[in-house]
Design a protein around this nucleic acid. Structure first.
Lengths: 212, 212
DNA sequence: TAGATTGTTAATCGATTAACAATC
DNA sequence: TAGATTGTTAATCGATTAACAATC
């Protein structure tokens, strides 16, 4: 709605960060903030704050600034965090478990409704509210439940098989922790990759090339 | 060395991805590749590949392309992956454990030499080769061992305390999984953040705004 | 030599910052 | 009204892409 018209990815990827800072300010009962102050807290320019927010509409008020709570809610709506996209976890290893236990999916736009494993020893165990299910039952589950997204927490070599099955049955949005290149195989898939080792290599580079 | 002169972060952050693809090609015994082919595999432009690589020197050969193995080794060297930066893990919860078990630090420029926890139930347990130690012994450990970096895998509210202690004793490079804003507090710290929930929110946005 | 492909310069595109008129 | 601060346009900066001469 409002101004939209395909916002650039640079802006989108900054939104969660705005959201985090606004949530904090809100918790601290700060009711209004200027772009200058917000920018200084976030260590960006005030221009950028105003430009970014204005992609979606005029949330501020001249001479006053922005209402923290209102702006927070606006960004929440823009990000779609009020959704409950039904997601399943593929792989209940250390990573899958960590994610399931530590992220509050309901506040991030998702509901975790299933969890699948190949390791027989884990099948049947509890993971929070969920019972870890046999990956063999994946298709059946997806037929009986509407599944919007899959969180891929399995090693690269196991991705190809499950991915093909998920794609075939219509699950085409993935949060991918593996190094399997999902987008290369399925051009129309919506994929967000988390490449931890890439991130660590960047840290290594920076250590090896101590910045000015 | 060679051409350096402060390479832009956009280029740096692409290096790990080049590295991954080159490692794969190398494993598949592909010995040479042109910028055009590499670009098509990686779904980027050939121009970008050549520009990026040329930031560091002329690794290719006109009319021939690039030697996969040589290029891989060059990038490895540029990223500093041959280092063994001594790192400690702060927090042996689900995340810390997942990271410690799944990442091959030695191939990423690091050696994990210690692991600290506050939870008494976990202290003394094994985590791979390491024994989980009492966080109280952090300073002593850092005095006895050279520590280059800390992997922060503890909840936000616990970061402030440990961080101050780490900083005081001279550990100023952090791989940060928490939402604590390390750079705001310590401007000279070298920090790489992994904000999983930010990433998931971005996925949510994309689902809520299904792209063209 | 002819063909291929790099290294590199120049052109384009997009993102960030600065400036300021509008307005609360 | 005067002061503050936005929304928005224009200027700058940086990153990406295109083009092509150099050269293997």
């Amino acid at each position: 709605m409002s101004k939209n018209d395909s916002i650039s990815m640079s802006v989108i990827r900054r939104l969660p960060r705005y959201y985090r800072f606004l949530c904090e300010l809100d918790e601290q009962h700060v009711s209004r903030i200027s772009s200058t102050k917000l920018a200084s807290i976030m260590n960006v320019t005030a221009s950028q704050v105003r430009q970014d927010l204005n992609c979606f509409g005029g949330f501020g008020q001249q001479g006053y600034g922005y209402s923290v709570n209102q702006l927070k809610l606006e960004i929440q709506k823009i990000l779609g965090l009020d959704n409950h996209y039904q997601a399943i976890l593929i792989g209940a290893g250390n990573f899958g478990t960590a994610i399931a236990k530590h992220l509050d999916f309901e506040k991030l736009g998702f509901s975790l409704i299933g969890c699948f494993e190949i390791d027989e020893n884990k099948i049947g165990e509890k993971l929070g509210e969920l019972t870890i299910a046999d990956e063999a039952g994946l298709e059946e589950f997806c037929r009986e439940n509407h599944v919007d997204a899959a969180f891929m927490c399995i090693p690269k070599q196991n991705v190809e098989n499950v991915l093909a099955r998920l794609y075939r049955i219509g699950v085409r949005t993935y949060w991918n922790f593996s190094h399997y290149d999902i987008s290369a195989k399925y051009r129309d898939a919506v994929v967000e990759n988390v490449h931890l080792s890439d991130n660590l290599m960047t840290l290594c580079y920076r250590m090896a090339n101590i910045e000015k």
